[in-house]
Design a binder for these strands. Structure first.
Length: 297
DNA sequence: AATAATGACAACCGCCTCGCA
DNA sequence: ATGCGAGGCGGTTGTCATTAT
């Protein structure tokens, strides 16, 4: 990694030679580069799209001089270089949305990402696989099992809501959201090497905290979950949301979740988890599993 | 200090759908 | 009707930084 204008970027040397696949053709030997994108490649792609627009990715890849496939160009643009791509920690609001939407739609990452502006389907997918599935593994159950679904709906989601509310009332007790390592903090920097994007896309958990603290409204609906970092608020009304996705009436569910008691004995009362298993979670509520700043990690 | 294990995320792959000739 | 290319999507792998031993 190297730094340009405060950005963490992959250095050209980080792409090993084996990541360049050569394909021969009789008229014109063409190389297809694979692996991490270099700063130079990013700049070429950004400049080309600024001048010619998105789309027609195969011809873009050829015309721009990039030795990449059209698919690779498209992916790089959509997931990384495109303006308004948000990076950094997944906020509690976003976590809540992801849980809710996934329970409804499953692994429809693209669809889920439509409700988290700035987040890509790839990022949500990675979040699910690295964080959520990890906890399912810790619970020794499948992510689609009833046990895990119950844990999500009756413990984690209300807990998230509680934290969001706490933040909105100014206490902001547990941010940054996750127990981020220094590596995560480093990833908060904007990857887009285009200087025109530098100012608008930086984000930090601290600013997220400030944003939530300043919010006078408890987060109870999907639209309330669109309060962004950097002081930017991309709130949509429930009416707007209904226009986009009329089948998605989440407000009632959110209210239900918000009013559901967090029953510490839930998993001991039923047959969902026996006492030993409950203990194996790390102490259950009040134990390390639920203790501290981090719900998910 | 060295090495292994783990976490996070970028990138690739294969399959599918859709539009067009 | 059909073949083909482009683009989209979800699953999987690769890479690198960090943490643990």
């Amino acid at each position: 990694m190297e730094t340009i204008n405060g950005l963490m970027v992959c250095s050209p040397s980080s792409a090993s030679s084996k990541q360049v696949a050569a394909r021969s053709s009789e008229e014109e030997p063409t190389e297809v580069r694979r692996g991490p994108w270099t700063v130079e490649e990013d700049l070429v792609l950004i400049n080309y799209i600024e001048n010619h627009g998105e789309g027609r990715w195969n011809s873009l890849a050829h015309s721009s001089g990039l030795k990449r496939t059209g698919k690779s160009c498209r992916l790089r643009w959509l997931n990384y270089l495109r303006p308004n791509v948000r990076r950094g920690n997944i906020t509690p609001e976003e976590q809540l949305l992801i849980l809710q939407l996934h329970s409804r739609w499953g692994n429809r990452w693209s669809k889920i990402s439509q409700y988290l502006p700035g987040r890509t389907d790839n990022e949500i997918k990675n979040y699910w696989r690295t964080r959520v599935q990890k906890h399912a593994k810790q619970l020794r159950c499948d992510v689609n099992s009833k046990k895990f679904q119950d844990a999500m709906h009756y413990l984690w989601m209300p807990r998230l809501l509680e934290r969001i509310r706490a933040a909105s009332t100014g206490s902001c007790p547990s941010l940054p959201v996750s127990s981020t390592s220094s590596s995560n903090d480093q990833r908060l920097v904007h990857p887009n090497p285009n200087p025109s994007h530098l100012e608008e896309q930086y984000s930090s958990s601290e600013s997220a905290c400030r944003t939530m603290v300043s919010s006078p409204v408890p987060v109870l609906s999907v639209s309330d979950c669109y309060s962004f970092q950097d002081g930017e608020t991309n709130s949509i009304s429930d009416e707007q949301r209904a226009a986009v996705a009329p089948e998605f009436d989440v407000h009632d569910e959110w209210t239900h979740i918000a009013t559901s008691p967090i029953d510490a004995n839930y998993f001991n009362q039923g047959s969902v988890v026996d006492a030993d298993e409950y203990g194996s979670w790390g102490g259950g509520i009040g134990g390390s599993f639920w203790n501290g700043d981090d719900i998910w990690l």
